[in-house]
Structure formats: C-alpha cells, structure tokens
Design a protein around this nucleic acid. Sequence first.
DNA 1: ACGTAAGCGAGACGGTACGTCACGTCTTAAG
DNA 2: CTTAAGACGTGACGTACCGTCTCGCTTACGT
Lengths: 203, 203, 203, 203
Amino acid sequence: MTGKAEPGEGILAHPTGARSLRVREAVLRATRDLLWEGGLPAATVDAISARSGVSKATVYKHWPTKTAVAAEAFGRHMAETVPLPDTGTARGDLAEHVRQVSAFYASPAGAVFAQLLAACVTDPEGAPYFRAYFLHGRREAAGTLWERAVRQGEADPSVDVETAIDVLFGPLIFRLMSGHMELTPGEADAISAAALDGLLRHG
Amino acid sequence: MTGKAEPGEGILAHPTGARSLRVREAVLRATRDLLWEGGLPAATVDAISARSGVSKATVYKHWPTKTAVAAEAFGRHMAETVPLPDTGTARGDLAEHVRQVSAFYASPAGAVFAQLLAACVTDPEGAPYFRAYFLHGRREAAGTLWERAVRQGEADPSVDVETAIDVLFGPLIFRLMSGHMELTPGEADAISAAALDGLLRHG
Amino acid sequence: MTGKAEPGEGILAHPTGARSLRVREAVLRATRDLLWEGGLPAATVDAISARSGVSKATVYKHWPTKTAVAAEAFGRHMAETVPLPDTGTARGDLAEHVRQVSAFYASPAGAVFAQLLAACVTDPEGAPYFRAYFLHGRREAAGTLWERAVRQGEADPSVDVETAIDVLFGPLIFRLMSGHMELTPGEADAISAAALDGLLRHG
Amino acid sequence: MTGKAEPGEGILAHPTGARSLRVREAVLRATRDLLWEGGLPAATVDAISARSGVSKATVYKHWPTKTAVAAEAFGRHMAETVPLPDTGTARGDLAEHVRQVSAFYASPAGAVFAQLLAACVTDPEGAPYFRAYFLHGRREAAGTLWERAVRQGEADPSVDVETAIDVLFGPLIFRLMSGHMELTPGEADAISAAALDGLLRHG
DNA sequence: ACGTAAGCGAGACGGTACGTCACGTCTTAAG
DNA sequence: CTTAAGACGTGACGTACCGTCTCGCTTACGT
C-alpha cells in the first residue's frame, strides 16, 4: 500500500522500503493522537517528529506538508468507521446518512475535519491527500447509497452522482465552516428533506 | 454608525471618535488592496500597518484579529456588487443567482473568500466579522430572492429560508473548499436544477 | 555605547533604546557563559536564546550572525584582562607579552579564540565584530608596547606597527590554528627572540 | 602505497585493493573540482558523493571526515606547484618565497586554504590530513630553503627551522585568517624584511 | 568453477542547528 | 488619551549537512 496512488488523484509518492514503512506507521499514529488531543493546531511537524521519534527532515521526505500528514492520518483513522445505513427505502437511507454525517461534523472529529478542509485552501500540496485519504472514501460510500437509490427507482437517474452528493452534504459543510447555523439532527433532517424533495413545489 | 452591531452577531465594537474613523478607513483600504494583490496571506498585520500608516497596536485596538480586519475589508468592498437577477420566474432567478455566485467563487475574489472562510475555522474571534460584514449581506440577498419565490407560489413554503440558502449554495462552497470538482457554469446549473427539483423522482 | 562603531570598522549597528540594552546585556552574558562551558560549538543561537531569555528573532535583529554575538561577548569578557608588562627594557616587555599571549592561546580561552578566528573565515559578516571587539583591543595594547619601544630607541622605527605585531604574534596563531607545534613558554621565547633579533646573522 | 602513513603523522589508513584505488581517485578528483568551484562549503559530502559516483558510506570508509577528504584533495592538487626560488642569496630566496606564498594566500586557492585551516580547528580528526597532505610539503620546502641559508652562512644557525618558518609565514596566515590587513606583495616584503632583519635595532 | 564474503552504490534516516516569518503584546514619546 | 514607531517573546516553519544505517548488487577471491 505504501506510496500507492489513490484513484483519481495522481501519484502521492512516498519513499519505499521496509524502514520507510516503520516511519510512516509511527508518524501517522503520532499524528492521529495529536489530532485527537488538540486538533490540527497541535499537530505541528515538530510535535509529530518528537512524538513519533521520526526526524523532521524525514517527515518532509515522505509528505510535502503537515496538512498532508494530518489528512492521511485522519483518513486512515476514519476509514474504519463508515457503516452504511439500511432502512429499507432509499430515502430513509440517504436521510439517515445525512443525519450521521451531520452528527460526525458536530463531534470533536468534525472540528478536525473542518480544520483540515480549511487547511486545504491554503495548502494546495496537501489538499490531494485530504481528498484521497478522507473525502474519497466518504464520497464513495455516499455514492454507493446513491446508486442503490437509483437502481431502486427512487432517485432521479438524471442527477449526476457527484452533484447529488454535493447537494446533500454541501449544506452541512457550509454550516460547519462558517458557523452561521447549528448542526442538530433536526437541521440535518430539514436539509435532507429539502434536498431530496426539492426546493420548488411540484405536482 | 461606526461600531454598530450587525443583526444577530452581538457587538463588534470599535473605538469611536474622529481620529478612529480615519484610522479605520485607512486600514480597511490598505487591507483591501493587499487582499486584492496577494490574497489573505499577503494581508499581514505588519503589511497592513505599513501600507496604511496605522500602527499595529492601533489596529489591534479596533479589531481582535487580522481575520476580522480582512473580513470587514473584504465585506465592505464586495457589498456594492450584489445585483439581484430578475428573469421573470423564481426558478430562473434562483438558478441565475447560483450561476452568478458560482462564477464569483471561481474568480480571484472567490479565492479570497475561500481563504477567509478557512480562516474563520481557526479564528473564532474573527468569524463573526466575516458573517456580519460579508455572509450576512449575501444571505440576505438570497433570502430576498427566496421569499419572493415563495410569494409567487413557485417555492415550497415549508422550507426554511436558511435551509433553502444552504441547499442552494452549500454545494458550491463544498467544491470551492475541497477542490474536488470544478465550478463551471454548467456545474452550477446542474446543482441548482438538482436542488430545485429534488434528488428523488416525484410524480 | 550601544551601537557605537568601533574605530576603523564601519558601523556595527544595533537597535537602540532601553529595552535593547537589557537584551544586549542578557545575550552577551549568556553567550559568554556558553563559550566558557563548551566553546563556540556550544554557543548556538538556540542555546543563547534559551539561556538569555531573549528570543532568537531578537538576537538576529541585533547581530547578523552567531559569530558576531560570540565575538562581541568574548571581546567584552577579555577586555578587562590585559595587563601590559613593564620589565624595564622594550625587549623584555615584548618578549614577556609574547609569552603571555602564548599562554593565553594555550589556555581554554585560547581554544575559543581559535574557534572564533576560524569562524571568521566562513562568516564575513561576523568577522568585523571579532576584529572590533577583540583583535582591535589586543593589537592596540601590543601597539602601545611597540611604540614605547621605538621611543626608547630599542625598536627599529622603520618597521610598521602592524607589521611588527604580525611578526611577533602571527607565529603563535599559525601554531594555534594548525596544531603543528606546541605553544609552550619555551617556544614562545624562541619565537620572540627570533622575531626581535631577526632570522639572519648580522654584524 | 595506498594508506601509507605520512611522516610524523601516525597512520592515515585507507582500505586497500584495486577497487579502492578507483574510489579514492574519483573522490579526490570530484572534491578538488568542488573546492575549485565553490570552496569548502561547496564540498559537501553529498556533493562529493554525487559528483564522484562514490557512495557516502564508502567515502566514510576511506576518510574520517569531510575535512580529511578536502585536505587530501587540496594537498594533492597543490603538491605539483611548488617551485623553489633561486636568486643567488639566501635572503633573496626567502623573501621571494614569502612573496610567492603571500600571493598564493591572496588567490582563490588561498581562500580554500584558509577554509581548510579553519576547519582543522573544529575537526581534530581531519587536521592531521591537512598537515600531512598540505602543510608538511610546504614546510619541507621552506625548510629546505632555510637549511640552505644556514649552510651558506647567511641565516642564524641558532634559530630552529620550525621557528624560522613560523616567523616568516605566521604573519601571512594571521592576516589571511583575520582579514585585518591585506596581503599585497608590498606587505609581504615588509614582513619578510622585518622577520629577516629583526624588529630591534642592532649594531 | 563457483559460492561467499567483502566492497560498493543508492539513498533513507536521526540529529542538530540554521535563519525566517507572522502573530499579538508591550514600551516609549509625540500630539 | 490616542497614536506611530517599532522592539519583543513566542512558536513554528522548512532547509541543510552531517555521519550512520540498511539493503541488494557485483566483484574477485578461495577452495
């Protein structure tokens, strides 16, 4: 898996070899802990280096930016926790998923997510890592849900997967980033309802 | 009017008086220029101070954070440029507005917007300024459009204004921040169509 | 005295003001201690900063290079300890001075001197500080001796002061730097004798 | 001959064998070029390794320190260019030699010499190499001159060879290292005159 | 002739210091 | 009492070079 490119993201290369593997593991573990304890601001390269026992210079040989490290560490850690809902109806599944993601954003881990997303704006080198190691997985899960919904005939097949995902989750992210509205389960439901049924009257 | 609180945002206080007015004007003008030239990274407090002739200490007496200064400067400058569309139909107006906002995000000023939004995540003191001086105005404009659409009977009155706005523009912001998709006019149309008509089939 | 240029060395400028004075004092004291404990290698800017309580950035605002700091600190400390010999004859005074300087070079402080002189080769920015704050004082003292010797009619007035000094002390420095010969009192006497009487036979 | 100890310097050992010879040659050639192009600072071990095609580990199997490599490379290159003067008189020979050495110190190669001498202060492991591969040869040449002068009856036989050499060339080195005076031919003559005739009046 | 061990190229690694940058606080003196 | 000017502490940045190391490859030697 070392240095393997993520689909659609070009090559996110690292040094290879046995020693490198040890280094990568130590760095990612230390970074994950730091993120957990103090968010992105705590995950300074110095701190990562100190805690992992890997020298700063070596960190920079593996990742272009601290954002990249943090993104990969965060993505690794989150990758395991993606249970897809199965309520019987596509509408139920999608709404439930929005509710879950909203709850995630409202959690401490959500704050880290926001910090990482923010960091991507400033750090174009790190952004691909965030997309590859975190966003990609999440979007793939949501995409699965969406395609199932289309197959079941509930979802509008003329809507692009990407568009659908953005319309469902973009609102949550908007609120997360700007803080203009809260991310309660109720709000999540309101958003998913509006997105699924549309803003205009029909019929 | 100086230092007046923005609706819903508590008190964003500044020192008052004639000299203060001069200071505020000089700082905001200098900051605007710097933002324009090099984005948020260029709008260093030192740079703002140097260019405006206002000392750093004074800047910090008027604003809590450099983000606050930048947010206000950006908001001031953008406030004038918000023409609301009038195509005849609510659907047309909303779609057109999404297209306009999308184009704005894709522009250089959009990059500054992204940087500011990102900064708000890290800087809770500055965030209210961004909301008050920029977001608020934008959301108010969109809200006007939405309420007109409701009055015309085209929009679903059961959808909250805030929800509607977030569903329409959240997707754009998601893409802007994470960079996973482009912000072309075509994409903007796809998004507004999906949001307005809903993701599920109906009928 | 702050920021005052040393004669013949152009302007070795520092920030001025009361706070600066405190900073300079703290830095020089800390540096002197570090030099004493571990020589130039121990006097890293980080260590100086840590021990003096003055931030690294501030150190770099006062001195261009760690060599400069060390040179000034060393010179300050050494300035007080320059007793000029008075044996009655010029020959005796000069020989005695060579013996003293030789002993100094052979001492721990002499090692620091060697390190500083070596550093000047690599660091053209720091060299003037070494000349101004250390060498200048030493050469002035030796020059005094020499001029007294000329007035007394013992020394050859056709020999330039600078030349005389270099011929007397250059050999010691050569040995100190390259380590090809020891710096015992006996060797010092041999050198001063050779320099004072000349290498060729005469008469 | 490889790895043979230089006189008076203990054993400066290298690995032996046919391959080793190739390695040594490549390294020394590359180092010489680098020294020539950018002085000691350019002669990084990495650079030497890269340019010579010899791996860093191998370099360190042959030499204890980068100073050692540089010293040997420099000495090798300089070994060929030591023409001894023959003016007819010992005084003329010695003065001429001082003039030549002074010119050498003032040349680009002289700067490298200064850097190497400086490096020896910090690097006790490399110093013997500099003495063995460069200084030794130079001092031997000067010693030859001196002994000829003694045999011819011009030089004072009571002066030790080493002392004589140091008195003649120490002043040049002092100036070279500290930069307090220039190294013009005129200065060289003043120095040799003072050293040869002595600083005191006689007769 | 054929392993088998030494010598080697490649380059990752830990370590240490470097010099820089921007933030936000503080001090001083002028108005 | 507000300013301008700017020094200062703090904390992180990314880089550079050192000297050590690990890994296979390839040479050349010993049996």
